[in-house]
Write a protein that binds this DNA or RNA. Structure first.
Lengths: 238, 238
DNA sequence: GAGCATTTGTGCGTATGTATG
DNA sequence: ACATACATACGCACAAATGCT
């Protein structure tokens, strides 16, 4: 550290850590040394290191988690929302590897919210598929998908065989479907959601509720996706 | 409370509180009695009251805040994102009263992120307008708007006089503009943001970054809006 | 900043009612 | 009649967030 360079020490430290990150010495997702370690290495007070880390966090190069440490920011997935929003297509388009893990697939009566979204009466039978969406093996979303059972008979069996909602819908008589509206909110995760997404409980979720319709405009699916906010960015082109 | 009605106590309590809400005795935004008070009034344990309140929160009838109390949910603003996204128009269309409060309007050099979004070189002069957007007198968003100074001369003066970005842009030679892309993320608020939005620090923000272009497709504005997540819902129609 | 009161959040142990086999 | 499982309800203690002095 050069104390007479006319450049504040914290800037020099920030540049040094940034060099480690862009140079690849500190890969995305990895943990950086603790603030105390950095302070010792650079021969400065921990306050000075903190000033540098704050700058890096402001520029989204690192993510600081109280009690855990500082981590190099991972690449964020651009999740484009449009008429033909398909998880696997969106992920594949960015040269990443989509996968999924089924949580449950059941038949159940519709509660108020689901009934309103699907346009059926409360208590009518709906299929629910819950899954975790993953990119390159890392979980990025927990999603619940509701379908009017009457409209897509045998969907659950088809899904169990095919492992894809789009393919299962095709077998159940829905060759294609389109996203009509998406409503986006944010909230804190439940302990279960945090566990499934392997993220700390104090980081928020992006919640996107979508209504999908078939070619004739009939509602075919109501989906609720919860994204780990640091790993996904919803993109709207208009 | 009827302990032999065959209906769980917590359900009876939830129904009672719900009646107060839909009946108007507890208006939107008002604080409900503390859990201890309700437990005493109904002659049950606080856990039982909590079970009832959890149900009401799950149904979005109330919002529970640690250390503060429980509050009747206010109406959420549907904020529609499309090519012509204008704060005041969106609010007015829902029969609500838009207003705003200027935080600062300054000229400054572009940092990396702003320069990249506006498509200018780092360090070029940009105008920054920061404001709080309000609906019916309640803050719902803090937004920062960046403009390439060269492209919209005199914008700050015009904004100071007119109090509207759309009107100020018109005077500065941009008769109309359109939103090209929006990127949506979520994060926790800084203490300052929480204060400006008058929301607790443990509730997340919805962050929408937008690029606006003029009729010829040239980038005219880069906007970053931070919405109080409980008061706004972003809506995408496709 | 420290200290304090208020309020919600969490965990654990226990008891009871209800439905099922 | 009995065993089991599950949801309901209670009691107590402490953690965590907020707001105030």
């Amino acid at each position: 550290m050069d104390r007479r360079a006319g450049i504040a020490l914290w800037r020099q430290i920030a540049e040094s850590v940034e060099a480690d990150i862009v140079g690849g010495a500190a890969p995305p997702g990895s943990r950086l040394p603790t603030e105390a370690e950095l302070a010792a290495r650079f021969g400065v007070n921990r306050h000075t290191v903190r000033r540098a880390m704050e700058e890096l966090e402001r520029r989204s190069l690192v993510r600081i988690e109280q009690g855990r440490g500082s981590f190099v920011t991972e690449d964020v997935l651009d999740y484009q929302i449009g008429p033909r929003t398909r998880f696997s297509e969106i992920v594949a388009r960015q040269n990443r590897e989509p996968s999924g893990q089924l949580l449950r697939a059941v038949e159940m009566p519709a509660d108020d919210a689901v009934a309103a979204a699907l346009g059926v009466r409360r208590g009518r039978s709906v299929y629910l598929i819950e899954r975790v969406g993953m990119v390159d093996g890392r979980p990025v979303a927990v999603s619940a998908h509701y379908f009017p059972a009457q409209r897509v008979p045998g969907l659950l069996d088809a899904y169990a065989r095919l492992g894809s909602i789009t393919a299962a819908l095709r077998e159940a008589g829905v060759p294609d479907y389109f996203r009509k509206t998406t409503r986006i909110t944010a909230r804190m995760p439940t302990p279960q959601e945090a566990r499934l997404l392997r993220q700390p409980q104090n980081r928020p979720l992006l919640v996107a509720e979508a209504v999908n319709v078939d070619a004739k405009g009939a509602v075919i699916e109501f989906g609720q996706a919860r994204y780990a906010s640091g790993r996904v960015q919803l993109v709207v082109e208009s």
